[in-house]
């Protein structure tokens, strides 16, 4: 399934590819959380978004992510955007002050446009951060990173390694299931199913002829895999060693200092330069 390429791990040799996945995950989550803070004025909001946009642009250039890939990820959002714009225009939030013009009796506020723009920029920046993370980190590394963060939960007997194994198997099987979908679709197509045309009823029947065999084979596959793992001595609660040991290098140190520095600056700014604002995480 070549359609799944966007956001998939890309084998390249960049600064980000060589970073510790745990640090990458931490950096991304920190940046996204900070991205969603609110500011009292539009001016500050857009300066803030500009800074985050700049960061993501630099990261995209370093990671050599293709802008086309990003664009293809963003395009499906255009529908959401139009919807959002309409909502914002017709139902302006309280406290809107900047009247732009009126259509008949309907006042159009500049705030509505800014609000939509803010959400759009936030989404685009967030998507570019996630794209950089998934392109530069293999799914295995990512699950290792998750596992590492979940380690404290072992204290309350949470099966961390089992969850991590489940996650990595699930990720590993996405392309396989994709191939399976193609195969079943072809088989049904040659039996006269048309997946692209026909009314609702016909299409839903076509989908059933795809879904049922897909689920059955997925269950069979999982059963086989479970048996094969057991046959080769898999014990979910055994202590695991790792083939690749995650090491902390100078790159990680640089990245860690950068993100901690940014975080400190952000906190200082919130405390000293800005009045506290009630709503932190609203869109």
């Amino acid at each position: 399934m070549n359609d799944f390429v966007f956001g998939r791990f890309q084998k390249r040799d960049t600064f980000f590819h060589r970073l510790d996945p745990r640090l990458k995950l931490f950096t991304m989550i920190t940046l996204i959380v900070l991205l969603f803070f609110n500011y009292p004025t539009w001016q500050e909001t857009f300066i803030g978004l500009g800074i985050f946009g700049g960061i993501s642009l630099i990261a995209i250039l370093i990671n050599r992510t293709s802008f086309l890939a990003l664009l293809k990820m963003i395009l499906p959002l255009s529908f959401l955007l139009i919807f959002l714009l309409l909502i914002n225009v017709f139902f302006p939030t309280s406290g809107t002050t900047m009247l732009w013009f009126t259509i008949g009796d309907l006042p159009i506020y500049l705030d509505s446009i800014f609000q939509t723009l803010k959400v759009l920029l936030r989404l685009v920046i967030m998507l570019s951060f996630t794209l950089i993370l998934t392109e530069s980190t293999s799914s295995i590394d990512l699950t290792h990173a998750f596992e590492w963060y979940l380690t404290p939960l072992k204290l309350i007997k949470f099966p961390v390694s089992v969850v991590a194994m489940t996650m990595s198997i699930a990720l590993r099987f996405i392309p396989t299931i994709g191939d399976e979908i193609t195969r079943i679709m072809k088989a049904q197509t040659s039996r006269g199913v048309d997946f692209n045309r026909g009314g609702l009823l016909k299409r839903s029947r076509a989908i059933i002829s795809l879904i049922v065999p897909l689920f059955i084979s997925a269950f069979e596959r999982s059963e086989e895999l479970a048996l094969a793992m057991e046959a080769r001595g898999y014990d979910p609660y055994a202590k695991r060693t790792r083939y690749q040991i995650m090491k902390f290098t100078w790159r990680d140190l640089v990245m860690l200092l950068l993100i901690l520095g940014f975080l400190t600056l952000f906190i200082l700014y919130r405390i000293y330069w800005m009045l506290p604002v009630g709503a932190f995480f609203t869109m």
Binding site: S190, G192, D194, P213, I216
Partner: peptide, 20 residues
């Protein structure tokens, strides 16, 4: 193309997976 597919029957490998 459905007319062609009616004339050319194709049994896939592991065809038992197409039953539903």
């Amino acid at each position: 193309l459905s007319l062609l597919r009616r004339k050319v029957g194709l049994l896939f490998q592991f065809s038992e997976n197409q039953l539903f």
